[in-house]
Computed example of a mutant assay.
Amino acid sequence: MSREQIQLQIKQIIERRMSDDGIKPTGISSVNMFRVTKSMRCAPAVYEPTIVAIVSGTKEAILDGQHFIYGNNQYLCCTMSMPVEAGTPQASNENPLLGIYITLDTKLMSELAIKYGNVTGVSRARRASMQPAGLNLAAWDESFSEALLRLLQLDESPADTAILADSRLRELYYAVLKGEAGASAMRAYGAGNEIARAIEYLSSHLSESITIDDIASQIGMSRAVFHRKFKQATTMSPIQFVKSMRLNDAAMKIAAGMTVNEAALCVGYVSSSQFSREFKRMYGQSPKQWGANKDLLEQAV
């Protein structure tokens, strides 16, 4: 079966399940369908490790000025927590955005990546190469396409889902490891994943005072080496990354109804005036103006 035929089947599954815009969970843990018919310009978001596969329409994500625009030719693989801007600028009633959003099980991906590296030697071969970026677009190759369809077909049978979901997820993850996003996945989850571990730590301690020297020391790197490898993985310096994560997280909280002062404190800012200055420098609006902008209250997938 061709990629186009498989995507048509996936599209039909989504259309049978969804008549309105939004995100709809499937019976498979971590796997969701989504439908968007409203054009939304890119707004701050924090991508956790995910796979986003589009079968109709196009989507955009921006990381440190680099635009990732993708439709049904490529899927997006985010292997690490990333501060991005995301939107659906071309979605409409005539051209709806339909797709699948899968939250990666990092424990399972690590297990498969380490095993894959041990069997093939891929992890050792790539350790000396340039660190891949944490956000990748990868082709819908045959293995990925067939694995995704087989996974989604389970949702039509509760018994099949209960018994086969874990094995079908493993099959999909394995297809990712073998595909164009495999190098990034191996860096994040295989042997030598120090930068991914550092990002996981930074992402979970945004409200605290974070010292870059301490992080570098924890993963056994000098500050200079850590800085270089971190920038190769994320396109940002560690300081830029932490600031972007904090401000993106705060922007999402404000859009969801939190006050400016509450959002600033939640992401580690002691001074509300400093938070407002840095927020306006990054987004071109004050936090209060941002919260009052109704167009930004709806978050794209």
Rank of each mutant, 00 (worst) to 15 (best):
P44K: 01
P44G: 08
R197W: 06
R150G: 13
M130R: 11
R127N: 09
S145H: 07
N72G: 04
M82D: 00
G220S: 06
N32E: 14
A43R: 15
Y173D: 06
N95G: 06
M80S: 13
F275E: 05
I54P: 11
P96F: 06
G22I: 07
M258A: 15
G190H: 07
L172V: 01
N261T: 11
C42T: 15
R124C: 13
Q299M: 07
N261I: 10
R41D: 15
Q289W: 02
Y269G: 05
V36R: 12
A159K: 15
Q240V: 09
V267I: 10
S237T: 10
P83L: 06
Y201R: 12
R16E: 12
Y70W: 12
K107Q: 15
E94D: 12
F275N: 03
S272I: 01
L112C: 02
V46F: 00
I23G: 01
I10F: 06
E278W: 01
L247R: 07
A292I: 06
L152G: 08
L97T: 07
E142M: 12
P158Q: 03
A45G: 09
R35Q: 05
L172P: 01
S129I: 05
L265W: 00
R3V: 10
F275R: 00
F230M: 09
R16D: 12
Q74S: 15
Q7M: 07
K178G: 09
W140C: 00
A250R: 02
L169F: 06
L108C: 08
K24H: 10
D155A: 04
I100V: 14
K59E: 14
T161L: 05
A300V: 01
M109C: 03
I212Y: 08
R246L: 03
T235F: 00
G27W: 11
G284R: 08
M282H: 14
A53K: 11
P89Y: 07
E278H: 10
I100R: 03
T58V: 08
A183T: 04
I195M: 10
H205F: 05
I199R: 02
A133P: 13
L164I: 07
R127M: 12
L104N: 02
M245P: 04
A250H: 08
T234C: 09
A159F: 11
K229R: 12
L247E: 11
K253E: 09
A263K: 02
G220Q: 10
